[in-house]
Design a protein around this nucleic acid. Structure first.
Length: 346
DNA sequence: GTTCATGGTACACCTACCGC
DNA sequence: GCGGTAGGTGTACCATGAAC
């Protein structure tokens, strides 16, 4: 297979050495404009395309960053990725993205592939059930790692959200609307983020001396289908909760769809609060009350943290960054309406 | 098992020129 | 003649697969 033109070809066509071509391509001020123009014209005429692999070969330094994300069907992560890609691109890095769909097996495979690709660093939102030991293993590869959204202990750079505070805030809002029977639709067991979100909900209920029935904590998939399941479960309860705090906007949007299908309206039949403030949240019917932590800001901070790690030497290594954004509640129609007194029907 | 080829970079080095 | 600077050149080097 014939490969494309190289800097050797350009050098021959322009009548200079390949070193000069390389300097021109790097826009070095050492080459005078007339020579540089001649080289650029030769490159254009030959249809030259920069060979990044060869550059990495000599430089021993990759300019590719791996991004391993657990759920790309969640718009929050798409917003996060856009921000990460933007910051890394500005710093001269390209990104290699992989989606694990919450599968540990897929995650293992893509991490091996990223390592084979010689990525310079990794930004990762681990799949559910990822053991904390994985972070140490990745770090032992000599690759800087920044976790987003899902912490794995204090020894790893982590950019996330104060989930406990956020879910307490969401629950407080519903209590302020007069609700006393409030359900939680999310992941019941196991993982740090799920525990924090559930704990925030429970702490706010406890703060107001409100009891929590065991079946009010509804274990559903973190998807719109999960939200639909949660509504069916809630309307089977007697007496039923009058409000629900959802693990994320995906679940909350499923709740709104199912209420709509049943001919009921969120805010009136059931107050609904989500989390993430995805773009769609303000366009649902009714618009969704949700927690906002700023995917764009979190992505920017994660990228900047990784870039800082890539530029520091082993002597001046800084302690792990642990940044947890304090979310705000964006109140929309889905959580305000007739309130608890009417919605608390059997 | 050894040698070679790959494509771009890094760096030591060279030449020409200028001012003093 | 010397030192400084601009504008370049030559070549070792990188990892790895193919060829010998």
């Amino acid at each position: 297979m014939k490969s494309g033109p190289t800097i050797q070809d350009i050098a021959a066509a322009a009548g200079v050495s390949k070193s000069t071509v390389s300097l021109v391509l790097q826009e070095s001020p050492r080459i005078k404009a007339e020579t540089a123009d001649k080289v650029r014209e030769a490159a254009r005429a030959l249809g030259y395309v920069y060979n990044r692999g060869a550059a990495i070969l000599r430089g021993r330094r990759s300019t590719t960053i791996g991004m391993v994300i657990n759920d790309l069907t969640n718009p929050f992560f798409v917003e996060l990725l856009v921000a990460i890609e933007r910051v890394l691109a500005q710093a001269g890095y390209t990104t290699l993205m992989a989606h694990t769909a919450e599968s540990l097996e897929t995650q293992t495979r893509v991490l091996r592939s990223m390592r084979e690709q010689n990525v310079a660093g990794l930004i990762m939102s681990p799949a559910l059930g990822t053991p904390d030991a994985l972070a140490a293993e990745i770090q032992s590869w000599g690759i800087p790692l920044v976790l987003v959204m899902r912490p794995m202990g204090p020894d790893v750079d982590t950019i996330g959200v104060d989930n406990s505070y956020g879910f307490a805030l969401a629950t407080e809002h519903l209590i302020g609307q007069g609700h006393t029977r409030i359900a939680f639709a999310g992941n019941r067991k196991g993982y740090a983020v799920a525990n924090q979100r559930r704990q925030g909900y429970l702490s706010a209920m406890a703060e107001h001396s409100l009891p929590v029935e065991d079946d009010w904590i509804i274990d559903v998939p973190l998807t719109p289908e999960g939200g639909r399941n949660a509504v069916r479960a809630i309307f089977d309860m007697k007496p039923r909760p009058t409000a629900v705090v959802c693990y994320n906007d995906q679940v909350a949007i499923g709740v709104l769809h199912e209420l709509d299908r049943m001919g009921k309206r969120a805010g009136k039949a059931l107050a609904v609060v989500g989390c993430d403030n995805v773009v769609a949240a303000e366009h649902t019917n009714p618009p969704l009350t949700t927690l906002f932590a700023g995917a764009d800001k979190l992505g920017t901070i994660a990228s900047e943290t990784l870039l800082a790690r890539l530029s520091e030497s082993s002597e001046d290594e800084k302690p792990p960054v642990q940044y947890f954004a304090v979310p705000e509640l964006v109140v929309r129609e889905s959580s305000i309406g007739a309130g608890a007194s009417r919605a608390g029907a059997a």
